[in-house]
Amino acid sequence: MTAITNRVLKLVLPYPGLTLALILFWVLLHNSVSPLTLTGAVIIGLLAPWTLVPLKVPRIRIKSFTACVKLTGIVIYDIIRSNFAVAAIILSGKRRERSSGFVTIPLDLTHSHALAVLAIIITSTPGTLWAQHDVDTRRLLLHVFDLVDKTEWIDLVKRRYEPILKEIFE
């Protein structure tokens, strides 16, 4: 029974996550939950994902939702902390010697969605910047604003983000 419902669901909804996101987007845009808005939301949510089918976009499989929540918490904390760190550096001007530079980090992640999420996290955190990633050598080039110790930043990516991203996607 569940196998049949699963197959029917797969036929109707090629990307359930995208459908849900589109419905949420539509409701937020109209800022109401009236029957008319909801009908529009469901129609868009059911039809629009089919435009992705010819492109053969791989489906996202999230293994652990608790890890997602944990990652969100970590990212929010890191963004707030580094916002104030970078603001303090900019305001202090030239009073302190500061060097910024590139760091190369060997990555174990291979899943493309995990890499995309890591790129967004690293770049939206002020102070670190995703510069380049080589798929063959699996090396990431990172630009760091306040570079004191290279191993500190390698640790940040390897210990703080990589295990939890692996838990979610792989």
């Binding site: 963004i79 916002n83 900019i90 305001l91 001007g93 910024s100 955190t125 002020p126």
Partner: peptide, 24 residues
């Protein structure tokens, strides 16, 4: 503060860090 960083920092790669303050 982020935009002040955009005008005051010396190299391009340093300046890219500054606008993320306003955007986040």
């Amino acid at each position: 503060i982020g935009v002040i960083g955009l005008t005051r920092l010396k190299t391009f790669y340093e300046r890219v860090h500054a606008p993320t303050l306003g955007a986040t």
